[in-house]
Amino acid sequence: MGSLAGPSPDDAALWRADGPNLVIQAENLDFLGQLPDAAFTVIYLDPPFNTGRAQTRQNTTSVRSATGGAGTRSGFGGRSYQAIKGELHRYDDAFTDYWSFLEPRLMEAWRLLAEDGTLYLHLDYREVHYAKVMLDAIFGRDCFLNEIIWAYDYGARSRSRWPTKHDNILVYVKNPAAYHFDSATVDREPYMAPGLVTAEKAALGKLPTDVWWHTIVSPTGKEKTGYPTQKPEGLLRRMVAASSRPGDWLLDFFAGSGTFGAVAASTDRRFVCVDQNPAAVDIMESRLSQAAQVVRL
């Protein structure tokens, strides 16, 4: 569909429910405010993992929509949002910086999710436990659906501890009484002990559990774009298939190489992908320009 210099970030008409798929180059908080409440069925976020606590961050105060302010929402242990932050600060002073980075973006994700919507937050072991408490406060503990473990077997091997070969994906829903989930649409896996089930079951395979064994993107495979944190399409296809329907709008505002958009396009979903990195948007323009309008704000 091509690339545009694009409207200004203040142009609230850039996204329309009947408009084109979008790839947006922008700082995500600058752009997300123009998107309407409850517009997206699935939001997938793969933010910086904070491995060295060295990211450049923007501190922004966000206000929840009509359901009330963040400071009054009851979350983990019945305590208020600010109380939770205070307690975490006492345990890990350095985390305050990452919280300031992630908190307003997760609050925007809550606002943008449809009533039947699902958030997938992709992190690693360094931050996932803090993020779980943060999401309990923003969404409510009753909205926690799963923690998915993505297990892979590739890369260096530590000799001083158990090698770390998994990522964590926290799954939260907007409304625990109304979220969409259809496991019948998800790809099946081989049984680990096929001799213990009937031949028919072994041939059909089993539905995935909350532990997903899936290889990383092959360094020599056709999916490889050269983007350093690219995730495999098969991993994201499970999320999209289970938690959305053809025609639904999906959002990724740490889009990187655009894998989420590629999966959405291949499964007849609509998508908005946002990233501020020009190199990432260059890759997405090459990968998704036939399916999306690319706008550089």
Results as ranks from 00 to 15, higher is better:
247 G>Q: 00
83 A>V: 10
271 F>L: 03
250 L>R: 01
104 P>S: 08
254 F>Q: 01
52 G>F: 02
3 S>F: 08
193 A>V: 13
121 L>M: 02
273 C>L: 03
221 G>C: 04
224 K>S: 07
72 T>H: 09
282 D>C: 04
22 L>A: 00
148 I>K: 01
102 L>T: 15
7 P>S: 12
39 A>K: 00
20 P>Q: 00
164 T>H: 12
266 S>C: 00
219 P>V: 08
288 L>Y: 00
219 P>R: 05
245 R>V: 05
164 T>N: 13
52 G>C: 05
38 A>L: 05
230 Q>A: 09
9 P>D: 06
269 R>N: 07
252 D>F: 03
166 H>A: 01
120 Y>V: 15
73 R>T: 13
165 K>S: 12
101 F>G: 04
37 D>C: 10
154 Y>C: 13
76 F>L: 14
185 T>L: 11
143 C>I: 00
7 P>T: 05
291 A>R: 09
159 R>E: 09
231 K>F: 08
14 L>E: 12
150 W>H: 06
103 E>H: 02
88 L>N: 10
211 V>F: 06
44 Y>N: 06
252 D>G: 03
118 T>N: 02
267 T>L: 07
131 A>H: 04
42 V>H: 11
223 E>D: 14
32 L>C: 09
65 S>N: 14
255 A>R: 04
224 K>V: 13
260 F>R: 12
253 F>A: 13
252 D>V: 00
131 A>Y: 00
226 G>K: 09
70 A>Y: 11
151 A>C: 07
287 R>M: 07
68 G>T: 06
56 T>S: 11
191 Y>T: 09
235 L>N: 00
16 R>K: 14
98 Y>L: 07
134 M>C: 10
157 R>S: 08
163 P>A: 01
121 L>T: 01
40 F>Y: 14
64 R>S: 15
266 S>V: 02
31 F>T: 04
140 G>C: 07
190 P>A: 02
66 A>T: 14
111 R>E: 12
